[in-house]
Design a protein around this nucleic acid. Structure first.
Lengths: 231, 231
DNA sequence: CGTCATTTTGAAGACTGTCAACGCGCGTGG
DNA sequence: CCACGCGCGTTGACAGTCTTCAAAATGACG
């Protein structure tokens, strides 16, 4: 069941992170132009559920401010995060009837929610919309494909380096940015434990690859060196 | 560059494995019906490259007989297999210009190759085709999403159990089937080493979960027990 | 200034990887 | 027809990376 009703009435002091909307995962301006006006603005507070795994996929979402994680849970509590979404990113698109992941706000977040039925109806007559829907799914697929090498064939160092590179590319200031997610989120994204993530950050700081003015703020001292650490 | 020309002239004694076409990844009958006639039959011999990573995606393929693996390589030789494709499955669809994986025949294989341009042109006017293309990509995404938990959060036992369950579901005889891929392929699919895969198979056989009449032939003795081992 | 969540650090252990040798099946050639 | 060679798979011993369990440190907030 959607939790929006509960959230919609909350006054959310949406906290926005300085990430660009035109990131690889966020280049959906055509989509934006044609559909922004149809959406419903919904606020979610930190850690609120936007939708749950296996729920009917009624809406497609676009982040206006804040950030979102999608994830799957195993019975014993193990969690795999599928992706992090930042302002401008679209998420929640499914071609099947139900969501395959759960989605939660990582910070107070405002999303634009568009009825899925509206989109599929439009796609019936407008090939551009149809292509747009396909493109968004294909972009997700590309990203997840990259993530597969990370999860299947990379060391902890490589995973963290790759993660930092990704966040760097998605942020306005490529060499200094604030992470919207916790260490636990990063660990569950990279298939590591929180301790290993923390140790790897510390190790990189000792080797002067990065600086950590605070646990959430990262300064990259050598982006070239970072890049050499993954793939 | 496509290697088809080289392959097309080969007389390929296409070896077909007893897998159903209507597997989760292969339910593309609408697609089949509308497009089968447009395709070009191409034979590839065992281990032949069908296309390479980063090559322009000129064709979309459908397997008539045989089997195919797609994969990415790292500079140092590490390999991650993205998927295995069996008769009836469609692969090679990209929304971008280039392939993101390489594709190789695992056995002598015959595919139906359809010009990508033809499809996208059709999709311009036919919403059903457009939806079909989207669906195929979305199904791939679903599969890869499941693979993420496997690679990020599962033990070797769980990975192999999950793999066997998947192959079982895709085969005609759910409790006895022939694997079209080598141990190395399985390892690179599951993010393990060949030794760990082999040891896990042996361990499962000792515990009477499976029988291995030959290294490629698997007989599941307790599908329920297998299912309990993953997720 | 105290409390609680989060992060970091430490020590020990487990699982998987690495390196190495052996076995098996099969095709080729003597 | 049998021996040999080769690719592939299995098994063993050991090592290493990451996890687990535990405790201390840091930081946000009332």
């Amino acid at each position: 069941m959607l939790v929006q009703a509960k959230q919609a009435s909350q006054a959310a002091a949406a906290m926005s992170y300085p990430f660009r909307a035109d990131t690889p995962a966020g280049k959906q301006r055509g989509f934006q132009n044609s559909l922004d006006l149809m959406g419903l603005k919904l606020p979610f507070s930190r850690n609120a559920e936007i939708y749950g795994q296996a729920e009917p996929a009624e809406y497609v979402y676009k982040i206006l401010s804040g950030s979102v994680r999608t994830y799957k849970l195993l019975d014993d509590g193990r969690r795999q995060i599928g992706a992090f979404y930042l302002p401008g990113d679209v998420f929640g698109i499914e071609s099947g009837a139900n969501h395959r992941f759960s989605a939660e706000a990582m910070a107070d977040t405002v999303v634009l929610a568009v009825k899925r039925a509206t989109l599929t109806a439009l796609a019936q007559t407008d090939a551009a919309i149809a292509r747009e829907l396909w493109q968004i799914t294909a972009r997700e697929l590309d990203h997840v494909h990259d993530q597969m090498i990370l999860l299947g064939r990379s060391s902890a160092q490589e995973r963290v380096a790759s993660f930092l590179a990704e966040m760097s590319e998605r942020s306005e200031n490529q060499s200094e940015f604030v992470l919207p997610m916790s260490r636990q989120d990063i660990a569950d994204y990279l298939g590591l434990t929180i301790e290993t993530v923390s140790r790897t950050f510390s190790s990189m700081e000792r080797r002067a690859l990065i600086e950590l003015p605070s646990s959430r703020k990262v300064r990259l001292k050598s982006r070239a060196a970072l890049r050499n650490m993954h793939s």
